[in-house]
Amino acid sequence: MAQQAHIVGKVEYREGDGPNIAIRPGPVQVETALNDATLSWTDEDTRGSAAMPLADFKRYVAEGKIRLAA
């Protein structure tokens, strides 16, 4: 089940061995699995998504960079 969240700080993910890519501030939907979290968002006509290790996601939440909706 997707959970609503809000990006409020610098949150980045990495595609393969490439550079870190920032996720823009704003609302996202979060789907968590055993080992990772997938964040999805919409900007006007474009959609984005990013997968990150669950440990990184939890760190961003603990640091206050991602706020989970109540």
Rank of each mutant, 00 (worst) to 15 (best):
R24M: 07
D36N: 11
Q29M: 10
S40N: 08
T38V: 13
L34R: 14
G9N: 06
R47T: 12
K58I: 01
A55I: 14
T38P: 00
Q3T: 12
P19M: 12
Y60R: 02
T32I: 13
A37C: 02
G48N: 01
Y60K: 05
A69G: 14
Q3E: 10
F57Q: 02
T42Y: 08
R24P: 02
Y13G: 05
E63D: 12
I23V: 07
Y60G: 00
V8Q: 12
I7S: 03
D17C: 04
T46G: 07
D17Q: 11
G18Y: 02
A50S: 13
K10Y: 04
Q29R: 09
V8C: 10
W41L: 07
Y60E: 06
L34P: 00
T32A: 05
N35G: 00
R67Q: 15
M52H: 00
K10W: 00
A69Y: 11
D43E: 13
A69W: 07
R67I: 15
D17L: 13
W41Q: 05
P25M: 08
R24H: 10
S40E: 12
A22Q: 06
D45S: 11
D36Y: 14
D17N: 12
K65L: 10
M1G: 11
E12M: 09
Y13R: 03
K58R: 15
R24T: 10
D43C: 03
G16T: 05
T46N: 14
V61Y: 04
S49L: 11
S40W: 08
G16I: 02
V61P: 09
F57W: 08
P27D: 12
G16C: 05
D36H: 15
E15I: 12
A5K: 06
R14S: 01
S49K: 09
E31M: 07
T46F: 14
G48T: 04
S49G: 02
W41V: 04
P27V: 07
A22F: 04
E44M: 07
G64V: 10
R67D: 07
K65M: 08
I23E: 03
T46M: 13
A2P: 14
T46I: 13
V61L: 11
F57C: 06
V30L: 11
E44N: 11
V11L: 06
D56M: 10
M1Q: 04
K58V: 03
N35M: 12
T46L: 12
P25A: 05
V28M: 01
P53Y: 13
L68M: 12
P25H: 07
K65S: 09
A51R: 10
V30Q: 02
L68I: 13
V61D: 12
K58Q: 15
W41D: 06
G18L: 05
L54E: 03
E63H: 00
A50W: 08
S49R: 08
L39E: 06
D45L: 11
T38W: 07
A2Y: 09
A37S: 03
G64T: 07
V30P: 04
A5I: 05
T46Q: 15
K65P: 04
A5H: 02
G48H: 09
Q3K: 13
E15H: 02
E63L: 06
D36T: 13
D56R: 13
T42V: 15
V28F: 01
R47M: 03
I23T: 02
R59Y: 09
P25N: 12
F57I: 02
M52Q: 00
K10A: 09
D56H: 08
A69M: 14
V61E: 13
M1H: 01
E63V: 01
A55V: 15
R14Y: 03
